[in-house]
Computed example of a mutant assay.
Amino acid sequence: MTERRPRRHDPERRDRIVEACLEVVGEVGVAGASTRRVAAAADVPLGSITYHFDSVDALLVEAFERFARRMSDRFEAAMATVHGIDEARRAVVDLIAVDVLTDPHELVLTHELYTLAARDPRYRRLTHAWMARSRHALERHFDPPTARLLDAMIEGLTIHRALDTEPRDRDEVELAVDRLTRTSPGDS
């Protein structure tokens, strides 16, 4: 009779799988994110993936939902702590230059999400919700049209940062934010 190994109690396993999925996608992209790689990164048996998720796609959706929520939370926290238009401008510059989406891993995840969103309405809804949260956080300090333009500029500059061979100069970012927000109704 074969002795049965005790079952491993692992209440964080599902969470670890989702985090490992983000790690793997950040390293090799969605196309390279096999269940085998995710299981190895999460240090779980391969069967744990199918136990916790109906499909690889279900895992990807949950992982990208988590990533988008995490990024939105950081964005909102940065904008919630400022007072006045000048602090708001500095916070936007810091979001672009220092705080959000400056990590190469996060940039890859963002671009992988954008690619999925271009083809799949589920991911498009996810990116739409992320953009709506960003605009809402910006609207605490800027009128809605300015917030929309700032959000687009932030997205565009993160794309440039990911693809450009030259680093972005903070002065250039400050100039862009100033020009875009100079005529905001909250200006004094």
Score class of each variant (00 low, 15 high):
residue 167 P to A: 06
residue 157 L to P: 05
residue 147 A to T: 09
residue 166 E to P: 05
residue 147 A to D: 06
residue 174 E to M: 09
residue 161 R to E: 00
residue 175 L to S: 07
residue 125 R to H: 14
residue 154 I to A: 10
residue 163 L to Y: 10
residue 177 V to C: 02
residue 170 R to P: 03
residue 133 R to Y: 04
residue 172 E to S: 10
residue 178 D to L: 08
residue 126 L to T: 10
residue 175 L to V: 10
residue 127 T to L: 14
residue 143 D to P: 02
residue 165 T to S: 06
residue 174 E to C: 02
residue 153 M to C: 07
residue 171 D to G: 13
residue 131 M to Q: 11
residue 149 L to C: 02
residue 141 H to C: 09
residue 132 A to L: 08
residue 164 D to W: 04
residue 158 T to Q: 01
residue 173 V to W: 04
residue 173 V to I: 15
residue 129 A to D: 15
residue 164 D to S: 13
residue 142 F to S: 03
residue 127 T to P: 05
residue 137 A to P: 11
residue 174 E to A: 05
residue 160 H to E: 13
residue 165 T to Y: 04
residue 168 R to C: 07
residue 133 R to M: 00
residue 173 V to Q: 04
residue 136 H to F: 10
residue 142 F to N: 01
residue 161 R to Y: 04
residue 171 D to R: 12
residue 171 D to Q: 03
residue 181 T to R: 00
residue 163 L to P: 00
residue 134 S to E: 12
residue 178 D to G: 01
residue 157 L to T: 13
residue 125 R to W: 11
residue 130 W to S: 11
residue 169 D to Y: 09
residue 130 W to I: 00
residue 171 D to C: 11
residue 154 I to Q: 01
residue 144 P to A: 01
residue 180 L to C: 08
residue 131 M to C: 03
residue 168 R to H: 06
residue 173 V to S: 05
residue 183 T to K: 06
residue 167 P to Q: 05
residue 127 T to W: 07
residue 147 A to N: 04
residue 176 A to F: 06
residue 141 H to D: 06
residue 170 R to V: 15
residue 181 T to H: 02
residue 131 M to L: 09
residue 161 R to P: 00
residue 167 P to Y: 07
residue 136 H to T: 14
residue 153 M to Q: 06
residue 181 T to Y: 00
residue 145 P to M: 08
residue 179 R to T: 05
residue 173 V to M: 05
residue 175 L to D: 03
residue 127 T to G: 13
residue 167 P to C: 08
residue 181 T to N: 01
residue 166 E to N: 13
residue 136 H to M: 09
residue 150 L to F: 12
residue 182 R to K: 08
residue 144 P to R: 00
residue 158 T to M: 05
residue 173 V to K: 05
residue 125 R to Y: 11
residue 135 R to Q: 12
residue 169 D to G: 11
residue 139 E to I: 15
residue 134 S to Q: 10
residue 156 G to M: 06
residue 167 P to V: 12
residue 174 E to Q: 07
residue 130 W to Y: 12
residue 169 D to E: 07
residue 180 L to M: 09
residue 134 S to M: 12
residue 149 L to D: 01
residue 127 T to Q: 14
residue 146 T to H: 03
residue 171 D to A: 15
residue 154 I to H: 00
residue 144 P to L: 05
residue 180 L to T: 13
residue 152 A to N: 03
residue 163 L to W: 08
residue 152 A to V: 15
residue 180 L to V: 06
residue 175 L to I: 07
residue 176 A to E: 06
residue 174 E to R: 02
residue 130 W to C: 03
residue 147 A to W: 11
residue 138 L to R: 04
residue 162 A to S: 03
residue 135 R to E: 13
residue 167 P to L: 12
residue 142 F to V: 03
residue 168 R to K: 08
residue 132 A to D: 15
residue 126 L to I: 08
residue 148 R to D: 14
residue 169 D to W: 05
residue 158 T to E: 04
residue 176 A to R: 02
residue 170 R to W: 05
residue 157 L to F: 07
residue 128 H to D: 15
residue 166 E to W: 13
residue 178 D to W: 01
residue 142 F to M: 09
residue 166 E to G: 10
residue 144 P to C: 05
residue 140 R to C: 12
residue 162 A to K: 00
residue 183 T to W: 11
residue 156 G to E: 04
residue 133 R to W: 02
residue 127 T to D: 12
residue 139 E to A: 14
residue 176 A to W: 11
residue 137 A to V: 13
residue 166 E to Q: 14
residue 173 V to E: 09
residue 182 R to W: 10
residue 170 R to L: 13
